[in-house]
Design a binder for these strands. Structure first.
Length: 269
DNA sequence: AAGGCAGCCTGTAAGC
DNA sequence: TGCTTACAGGCTGCCT
């Protein structure tokens, strides 16, 4: 599942491959993939930058148009030349003037491409929470947004309006690494635990980016290669934790939650 | 207001 | 063997 490290991996590879190329057109092969408010699709010009915000990929162009891609669960951006055929999962194609193309393949069809005027970017992302690597991600900020939130901490880690970029796998890993039980109400976490949460979040995301992300089901890089962080997972999908304790699996916020009842305390230390 | 959860979708795997 | 069912999960929107 593409989460922050997987999206960051794609963004870094796109930077090397499409910056400076002119976008000729964007074709939608399946309805409800490409969204825009233009009466006719605009001229794009060259790609001037590729960036990430949360799990969104932002492609900015010369003519001040932004293509905002969300991979959701199974979306992939694959750089291809003319010889590689469209598959039944190809939802959209971004074509460049040098005849290379960027295929947007997505088995489950939840992924989207939004084409918006650059000036609307702030509005597009206005509800999104803080970036884990930003200064805004600090204990004071977390204490503020967690106040009066009795929701399990795991659910809040997944809430993109609180923190942008975490998904189910990394939320599990971060909480195990902090020895915090996933069902702990967010508002009872201590200042020390919040700091630990911040440190471990950055540590795990940094290592995952270094490993080009986690290919636990079907994440692929732009050259269709896999990431390797799945080899370093400590709790997600495991039967026993690294201390040898049995791992418990529950549903929280409708998602599989793996935790070690021995290591992850439900009470404040 | 806040929180919980169905629904969107399709491929895979398990169960009968 | 072949059908059915459960599951995976990011995000929106509805309901309580």
């Amino acid at each position: 599942m593409p989460e922050l490290p997987e999206v960051e991996t794609v963004v870094r590879e796109l930077k090397q491959n499409i910056v400076g190329k002119s976008i000729v057109k964007v074709d939608e092969l399946r309805p409800d993939t490409v969204f825009h408010d233009f009466s006719t699709l605009p001229e794009y010009g060259k790609v001037i930058s590729v960036n990430r915000r949360g799990k969104y990929i932002i492609i900015d162009t010369e003519r001040n148009i932004s293509l905002i891609v969300h991979l959701r669960m199974t979306g992939k951006l694959i750089i291809v030349n003319n010889e590689i055929p469209v598959t039944k999962h190809t939802r959209a194609i971004i074509s460049f003037s040098d005849n290379t193309k960027l295929f947007f393949n997505d088995i489950r069809t939840f992924g989207t491409i939004n084409i918006i005027p650059g000036k609307n970017k702030l509005k597009f992302f206005c509800k999104l929470g803080c970036e884990p690597f930003s200064d805004e991600f600090n204990t004071e900020h977390l204490a503020t947004i967690f106040t009066r939130k009795k929701t399990p901490i795991k659910n809040l880690l997944l809430d993109q309006n609180c923190i942008a970029g975490l998904g189910n796998i990394y939320a599990n890993e971060i909480l195990y690494s902090c020895k915090i039980a996933p069902n702990r109400p967010a508002n009872i976490l201590s200042k020390t635990e919040l700091q630990l949460l911040i440190d471990k979040t950055r540590e795990i995301l940094t290592e995952a980016i270094k490993q080009n992300g986690t290919s636990i089901s079907d994440f692929r890089r732009v050259d269709n290669k896999s990431g390797s962080f799945q080899n370093f997972l400590q709790i997600y999908g495991k039967d026993v934790c690294c201390e040898g304790h049995p791992v418990k699996r529950i549903k929280s916020g409708g998602r599989s939650t793996f935790y070690c009842p021995e290591c992850q305390k439900e009470d404040i230390e």
